[in-house]
Each structure stands twice: as C-alpha cells, then as structure tokens.
Design a binder for these strands. Structure first.
Length: 102
DNA sequence: TTTGCGGCTGTAA
DNA sequence: CTTACAGCCGCAA
C-alpha cells in the first residue's frame, strides 16, 4: 500500500508511484488505473498528479474540480493546472514496501 | 498468441 | 508553450 500512505498536504506523481510499485515507466498505467477507481474509494487519488506539478485532470470536469477542491482544502495552492510540486513533494517512506497495489 | 491502439505520462527538442 | 517520440500496460481484434 503506497498511495494510501501519502500524508495530507503531500503530493506525488504518476511516474513516481509507478516506479515505487515496481513498474518504472508505467506512469500511464497508474493514471488509467486511478481513473477506474470507484467513487467511494478511500484512496487519496487527488494527491497524485502529473510530472512537474501539473494536474492532468482539466478543470470544469467533476473529477478535476473535486481534486482542486480537496487539494486546496489540504493547504495546497493550486493555480490553474499547476501546483508548486517542489514544496509539497512526497518522499516515499522506506517502510513496508511490498509489491503493488494501492 | 501476436498486433495494434489508446491512455489522469515523461522527457527532450 | 508546442510537438515528437519513447516506453509500459490493458484490452480488443
């Protein structure tokens, strides 16, 4: 469980996650997977963004707005489709790094 | 089983 | 900012 370990106010990228889960380079896979998550999921999917601190979900979409709202409520400054990744970047915890899954 | 295509990407030009 | 291309995975043909 990696995604579920991301603390509030922290961010990570698809590529990062993929790498941490043992699928380096499979960022797209992560993204697609997240997009298939149930609506009542408990995972902090909104803390997963594209590289460089970009929100790949466009505003004006249910998911996009939802994400922005949640991020802002966690104290993250979101401007358009950008955030200051440098300030919120999440450094993985070298703990129970099993394989795979959220 | 192999091939092709598309996706919440990533990096370089 | 806009291509272009590289990988990787899942799914359908």
């Amino acid at each position: 469980m990696l995604l579920s370990n991301i603390p509030q106010g922290r961010l990570t990228t698809y590529g990062q996650l993929a790498k941490l889960m043992g699928y380096p380079g499979a960022a797209r896979w992560v993204g697609r997977t997240l997009s298939q998550l149930p609506e009542d999921t408990q995972l902090p999917w909104h803390r997963v963004i594209a590289a460089g601190g970009r929100l790949s979900l466009p505003a004006n979409t249910p998911a996009g707005d939802e994400q922005r709202q949640r991020l802002r409520s966690e104290g993250i400054f979101v401007q358009g489709d950008r955030v200051k990744l440098r300030d919120y970047e999440w450094q993985p915890n070298a703990v129970s790094q099993n394989k795979v899954c959220f």
